[in-house]
Design a protein around this nucleic acid. Structure first.
Lengths: 178, 178
DNA sequence: GTAAAATGTCACAAAGTTGAGACATTTTGA
DNA sequence: TCAAAATGTCTCAACTTTGTGACATTTTAC
């Protein structure tokens, strides 16, 4: 595998464990020297930015896939949740990041994310989900359901095969679907 | 106010914004010098540990209060959620912390937390909430609903007065209550 | 095999963080 | 008022992290 991708994968894994981890740790895990890492990524910021870009692309692809798999908006929403879960588990540290100061890539990322949530008002108009609930609240529920799932995986208290099912059950009910 | 408490309050506020913030920032916000801070807290670890202890006490008190306010387990659960929200908003950075390496105080904190979730099986036996859902999953939903709320406050997208109502609506439905 | 590309090693300086000593100054409380 | 406690200021040493230059070694591709 390309060194650049190795570093990226390593960074994703390490920063998930400890966001403030020294760069050495990332390089070690990638099986490369810190010096080499810096040949690919100018500095820490550039590395994190690259992770963000990596995630955007991955998620965007998975979301598109989910939408093209069905014409039923509900099925699309379900698929998007699953895509979000798969992606969220892999890139969990970026969620922590987005709570801090935003980066340039970050704004692109959130604006890309916004696009997908245009589905919500659409579902509200069709009375599939309650219009008593603020769309912004639903967006947060969606994101946080992914966080919940990440925690569920991490805790080991719950059978992994059950998690997605429960997540979809809880999410669709939390937004007022039957 | 006591300097110790001033520092504690400042730490809670600053670390919420940026968990890796240098100690100077905390001392500044407390209106004290870094030197003085170190007279009260041996090092960074001791300070964070103190924040943790502070939270445990606050939450425990608020939870007890919520339980004593009613005999109805559902009302108790609702009150506990609100207590958790109030507390969670104030001590949000500790949630991030608990995802990292646990401290000595941390284990006490989680074990204290466990006690409160004995309410869940009890509600499942009474068929008030679905017993198809794993109690561990419900515990995570509870915690994450607090995270959601924290985000909701922070985002500013949602009317603050609506947040608790929506949180309780979404939470009780997510665990299978009507 | 050989040249170019990639990587490793070592060394280094700049910067940031941390905790504490020494001593001056201020605040507190009786 | 006065002594004790609390705090500030200044300083310092130890440590960590970071990015980079110089040069050796290995790997790759032809």
């Amino acid at each position: 595998m390309e060194s650049q991708q190795k570093i990226l994968d390593s960074a994703i894994e390490v920063l998930n464990e400890d966001f403030s981890a020294p760069i050495d740790v990332i390089a070690d895990k990638a099986g490369l020297s810190r010096r080499t890492l810096h040949r690919y990524f100018k500095d820490r910021t550039a590395l994190i930015d690259a992770c963000l870009l990596n995630m955007m692309q991955t998620w965007e692809t998975a979301m598109l896939q989910a939408c093209s798999n069905s014409d039923d908006p509900v099925k699309q929403l379900e698929g998007m949740l699953y895509a979000g879960i798969d992606c969220g588990v892999k890139y969990a540290f970026l969620h922590k990041l987005s709570k801090q100061q935003p980066t340039s890539t970050n704004s692109k990322y959130t604006s890309a994310r916004e696009k997908w949530f245009q589905l919500i008002p659409q579902l509200q108009q069709k009375k599939i989900i309650s219009d008593k609930i603020d769309a912004a609240w639903i967006r947060l529920l969606f994101i946080q359901m992914i966080h919940t799932t990440i925690e569920a995986y991490r805790s080991g208290d719950i059978a992994p095969n059950e998690i997605k099912r429960m997540a979809w059950y809880s999410f669709r009910r939390s937004i007022g679907m039957k």
